[in-house]
């Protein structure tokens, strides 16, 4: 097999990883603070749409990314307030917010662009590509790192920063303590409600970023429900990475590869089959890697795992 072909698959995998990685990090920060957030999908989708809409109006990718992050954060705030402040059931809020955003983006697509289904236009400005100084001269490495946007590189930085924040700073420790034992944290003067809402808003921002990385990454377009379960795949990646940002990078890369595999093999295998590969891979990965945890878990932890996982 041609080495350059393999490298281009890896390259495609790196680009598919970004949205999943961001969703997984969003899931991790919520789970760590003790909130089960199922609305990741909706938080991503609003980012995808707002990114394209702002891009269309301002022709500035930077503004588009920032607006997407804010939009994701706003949806996150809605989820956080409902779930944390009003104690609404997490699954109920999550699923209905996902449906709400799906409908809202479809309506806004019609209001802003006057189209239904999807929007694509040559006037949309794609994200600039990063040209690495030395590596782009080396033959094989240049294929590997070809066409990656700043968003792709930044996502790994975010994962590392989140790791440092959670495990090496006092603020991060407070967040973890709220997730582990709410009463104990509150007796230390930490507001569980505020911490949790902040965590959900942060997850919204991360998802908005992931969403815009999807709609302005490999392609520059918006289609209804274009996230296609990536929020949930992110939850799976978070699950595999056991809520640890560094481990999550590797879990997300696995799902990025299954995405890239589906995209590159669709000329040889019928695309109807390859499209299902990322979803099958998600279930298989969860089966293979979570086997040991079930054995370790005691009975009391079992119900906890049920609520969190």
């Amino acid at each position: 097999m041609d080495i350059n072909y393999v490298l281009s698959v890896v390259n495609s995998a790196l680009r598919s990883t970004t949205p999943i990685l961001l969703a997984a990090l969003a899931s991790a920060i919520c789970t760590r603070s003790g909130v089960f957030n199922v609305a990741l999908e909706g938080q991503m989708l609003i980012g995808s749409f707002v990114g394209i809409a702002v891009n269309w109006v301002t022709h500035s990718p930077t503004l588009a990314v920032l607006a997407a992050i804010v939009a994701g954060g706003l949806v996150g705030a809605l989820v956080g307030i409902l779930q944390v402040r009003y104690n609404a059931a997490d699954m109920v809020v999550g699923t209905s917010v996902n449906l709400l955003v799906g409908a809202l983006t479809a309506i806004l697509l019609f209001v802003v662009f006057g189209v239904k289904g999807g929007f694509k236009d040559p006037a949309l400005v794609p994200l600039p590509k990063v040209k690495l100084p030395v590596i782009s001269e080396i033959p094989y490495l240049s294929t590997l790192f070809n066409n990656l946007s700043p968003l792709d590189y930044l996502s790994y930085v975010i994962a590392i920063v989140m790791y440092i924040y959670l495990f090496k700073t006092v603020k991060g420790y407070h967040l973890l303590s709220v997730g582990v034992k709410r009463e104990a944290a509150e007796s230390m003067g930490i507001s569980a409600v505020k911490t949790r809402i902040a965590a959900v808003i942060a997850s919204g921002c991360l998802c908005g970023y992931g969403g815009v990385a999807l709609s302005m990454g490999q392609v520059t377009l918006f289609a209804e429900n274009m996230t296609a379960g990536r929020g949930f795949i992110g939850m799976a990646a978070c699950n595999l990475g056991k809520n640890n940002p560094i481990a999550i990078i590797f879990a997300s890369l696995f799902f990025g590869f299954s995405d890239a595999f589906a995209a590159t093999t669709q000329n040889t295998i019928p695309s109807q089959l390859t499209q299902s590969v990322p979803y099958i891979a998600t279930i298989l990965a969860l089966i293979v890697f979570s086997r040991k945890r079930k054995k370790k878990a005691t009975k009391t932890e079992e119900s906890k795992a049920e609520a969190v996982s």
Partner: peptide
């Protein structure tokens, strides 16, 4: 295997369709 029903059932929607 303790695989979350939320994730597995949602993934299986896509698999069924394809």
């Amino acid at each position: 295997f303790n695989v979350s029903i939320v994730i597995s059932t949602l993934m299986m929607n896509y698999i069924a369709t394809y």
